[in-house]
Design a protein around this nucleic acid. Structure first.
Lengths: 361, 361
DNA sequence: CTGAAAGCGCTTACAG
DNA sequence: CTGAAAGCGCTTACAG
């Protein structure tokens, strides 16, 4: 509850040019100038022009803080992500920024580094700036109750990317979800169409919602093809390159070993590819690999990585638009869940035809 | 001069909890509560505790807009970059964000997409939020005069990455520069140490300040080794992968052809590597290549690309710190130019041994 | 250590 | 189409 960092308390700084100065400069009242500023049709063109000339002459800059205070409501939207340096979130943020700018809103940014405590601190700090809305990609293990404590009830909130632990706790909040299930299904169907039958799901932690959903899509596609995945084909590991490389061997411990794997994400897929070559197998030739995310490296890997893309920039734009609709009050009353479609990008890593199985479709 | 996007003008919203409510709640004056909020030592511990309990009870959230208005000075810092989706700027922004958060400041973000007009609009919009300072990576061909028009004279400004056209126009603004010259010098020295003598400078446009500086470092190192670069070794092309691949042939038109190239940046280097293999040469074996930037792809290219890194995240932290020092008034009066050191990352692409020349050092 | 009063720069009814 | 007045939520001397 400290609000320390005192902004430089104006020493001998020259006085700021205010709306009153502009009004005085053209012999009008502040009210009239205010109307001009906000584009009101109540002011006649000639007056408007005079005011605008005076604004330019004096170098007046609108003080949105004062305006927001009076009108109760700012034109800032807060965005909180886990890590800006993650290309997925960077693209997402770029999309949000673009859509907000277009609508005349401004972006307040914070990042959590996946720490619920930092998330709380960041949201508190941003909330003090009275944003018109909040877009939040929650840190892992976020406590919805804590989030509610810092996010006022009347503030429109859009949760992105990760569902909150207890869905009911997010009642009233919109949710923009990636279509993890469908993406994994598409990837699995692609491998099935290429003739694979023994397909593993490789990497990720089962208890993460995204991993769970992707596994769900995988199971769906397998079931639809009349296949029951061997439990040994579901291999957990931390979603990093290094861990994936280390666990590659786990694919080949049972005898009818899988000929292909859907990976939790691209980092895992790339790690798996190195792990495979360390074992004398080559992705795209001896073993088929599909990732998830379509990170920039996917296209330039050797071989290029087939993967599932979710257009993060478009997500960002969609998120901003949804939230602005809420701010303007022209969104339906009930909270919404929007699902962003996932698309398959076929590249060389999934071209392999399994040796022991039939001809690809 | 329109300020259209009216925030939802508070319909039947419940009234906001204010400092006055908290004061009333514990039978104190607003002044006292304000002192508690700002951590003043003037209030005794028992009173402070009472206030804090009441704050929690009522769910009061500090209204920084009102405070900033009264105190004249916000705790927001504006950051304007060309493109957030560019990993270099994303890392930079992440660094700025981290350093600001640590100091209790908040980040206002905008992006220009390299358009001076959008830059002007974005800065205008951000300036209306009365930031304590601005960190600006200027769009190409920015007009310093226009920038001055929208950025008040009393606002601390830090220019990053790209020098403004007329240096004198940026008088009073700090500048955080990449050490392009030293980076290119290091890269050139590295190739010289490996025995190369005929070293090209490949890609980029001469009239860009960064290209000019990198060429300067290259020339310096060559001169220090007693070498005069053949003008035919200075090859211009747009700094993209595709253009670089197209221009690869230009390296081999003269007879004592270069055995190595310093590239303007990593995109150019990667393009050159494809261009080389299209001509039956392989980077790292028949020809040595060094890039600039250390983009994530550099490490996973085939062969991995030797390059010059500038730690964008650390740049971001440094930029934020410098700017905060200005805000607090504890920076030296005169504007400063800080140069971020460049570091060489040696990888396989520069392993080639020059054929016609002696043994590498 | 605490209270009463003025004021930051804007907007908003309300009159005219 | 324009003006006088009140007020958004806070901080800051100034007294006590």
């Amino acid at each position: 509850m400290q609000h320390e960092p005192s902004p430089q308390p104006t020493s001998a700084r020259e006085r700021r040019v205010t709306l009153a100065d502009v009004a005085a400069g053209c012999g009008l009242s502040r009210a009239t100038v205010s109307l001009v500023l906000r584009g009101s049709p109540l002011v006649r063109a000639e007056t408007r022009a005079r005011v605008q000339a005076e604004i330019a002459r004096q170098g007046y800059v609108y003080h949105r803080g004062a305006a927001s205070l009076r009108r109760r409501g700012s034109n800032a939207v807060a965005l909180v992500v886990n890590d800006l340096a993650n290309p997925f979130f960077a693209e997402f943020a770029a999309g949000v920024d673009a859509a907000l700018a277009e609508a005349g809103y401004v972006l307040l940014l914070g990042s959590t580094g996946e720490s619920p405590d930092r998330q709380q601190a960041v949201l508190t700090s941003l909330a003090e700036h009275d944003p018109a809305a909040v877009i939040l990609s929650p840190a892992e293990h976020s406590d919805p109750a804590r989030l509610h404590r810092v996010l006022a009830a009347r503030l429109p909130v859009l949760v992105f990317n990760r569902a909150l632990d207890r869905a009911d706790a997010a009642a009233g909040w919109d949710f923009l979800a990636l279509d993890n299930r469908r993406g994994a299904r598409l990837a699995t169907e692609h491998l099935l169409a290429r003739g694979h039958r023994a397909i593993a799901f490789f990497g990720g932690h089962r208890d993460s919602s995204s991993c769970d959903e992707r596994r769900g899509g995988y199971r769906e596609a397998m079931a639809a093809a009349g296949l029951a995945p061997d439990p040994a084909w579901l291999i957990e590991c931390a979603p990093t390159r290094l861990e994936a490389a280390r666990h590659a061997g786990a694919l080949f411990v049972r005898d009818p070993a899988p000929t292909a794997a859907i990976c939790y994400n691209d980092a895992v897929a790339l790690g798996l590819m190195s792990g495979l070559s360390a074992r004398g197998r080559q992705a795209g030739r001896d073993f088929a690999v599909v990732g998830f995310d379509d990170i920039p490296e996917a296209a330039v890997a050797m071989p290029p990585l087939s993967t599932v893309a979710v257009a993060p920039r478009e997500c960002g734009i969609a998120a901003a638009r949804l939230v602005l609709a809420r701010v303007r009050g022209d969104a339906p009353q009930a909270s919404r869940t929007l699902v962003v479609p996932a698309q398959l990008r076929v590249r060389a890593s999934s071209f392999a035809v399994p040796v022991s199985e039939g001809i690809p479709a």
